[in-house]
Amino acid sequence: MVQDANGDSSDRTVLNRRNAIKSLGVTGVALTAGCIGDLNEDEEWPSRPVEIVSPWAAGGGADRTSRAVADAAENHTEVSWNVSNQTGGSGSVGMNAAANSEPNGQTIGCTAPEIALFEHLGIAELSPDDITPIMQYTEMPAALVVNKDAEYSTLDEWISYGESNELQMANSGNGSSWHMAAAGIADEAGVQVEHVSYDGAAPAMTAVANGEADCTAAGAAEVAPQVQDGNLQALGVAFEEQVDALPDTPTLQEQGLDIQIGSWLGHFAPAGIDDETKSAIVDVYESVYEDDQFAEFMNNNDFMRVQRGPDEFSSFLDEQYEYYGNLVEELDISG
């Protein structure tokens, strides 16, 4: 079973020191742009439209929930909120773009477990130390799905097939959280797989629905529409109990696979943002989380609502960094 690690985080000392040096470099750049800062120092956030960067393709959970956040945020601010999709590098392209943006709150990033994976896999020099956590707002248990016409329609049949045949397993990018979930499930099941990367959960699911890949692991809420439409079959959910998104799908655990794994989503600002602006953003996000429009979207689309504010989210990210470091080593995954 894949479990959270409880060791200390002393191995991050070098990373923290590196980021301290990095922050000095950013400060130097900011000082050279002094006149730009002077023009904006009296403006209260948000002074102009806010952009949320979703690091994966349109149609996936990060994209859909970020758009729901943007829509609700317009109820609590006097500016427009927009979402841009900047894909690639298992999410590192979009997250880097947001993390390296001007720390004025006008650009917000969407993040997921990948932020705790990039450095372990050598994908990017980007970790929880490089961002300002704002809020986690959902978690998504992984669901194992296959094509509607697959010759295996149960978990046992999938395992039997995979023991003697190599399965093409789509994921949302090499080193992504759904790659980790897929690898964890395959390892626990003892099946042979070739992992095939796409630019998000939505194209990975489409690949399975079109017969380009045999299976994928993605969020239960993400796969639910295609399961309901009959394009995909769900064989199990990697959670402690059945979920509302797939009410007729048993857990993997009750079918003999002792694993619970998935993903989560949250938003962040760049590192170095001032306390006043951060506080203003957090206030808006707290209003968004309680907003009837946002709650209705989450409930109607079976996204679990889980709220972690800045401090709790920051501690959670540190735990995730250690957890995924151990998981990468355990499953021998490389970027």
Rank of each mutant, 00 (worst) to 15 (best):
K278S: 15
D229Y: 06
E44R: 07
E166A: 03
S66I: 00
P203W: 12
S84R: 13
Q260T: 14
T32D: 10
W56K: 08
I159P: 01
G325L: 10
N171Y: 00
N326G: 11
S172C: 02
D332P: 14
A72E: 09
V191G: 02
T65C: 04
T27P: 01
W45V: 03
A99P: 06
Q3T: 10
Y161T: 14
S80Q: 00
T154N: 04
G325D: 01
T138A: 08
T32P: 00
N19Q: 13
N300D: 15
M140N: 12
P250H: 11
I131L: 14
Y161F: 13
G37E: 09
A271T: 03
G25K: 05
E290A: 13
H195C: 00
P310Y: 03
M298A: 09
Q136R: 14
K22W: 07
V53C: 03
G88A: 05
A183F: 09
M180A: 14
F268S: 04
S334Y: 11
I333T: 11
S197D: 15
G173V: 01
L252A: 09
T111D: 15
V306T: 15
S101W: 08
F268T: 02
W264V: 01
V227P: 01
N104S: 15
M1G: 07
L117T: 04
G184R: 05
D156K: 13
A238E: 03
V50A: 04
A143F: 05
Q260V: 03
G109C: 12
E157N: 09
L246S: 08
S176A: 11
I131D: 11
L117V: 08
L144N: 03
L155E: 06
E319S: 08
G256P: 11
G190P: 04
Y321L: 03
E241D: 14
P270A: 08
S279P: 01
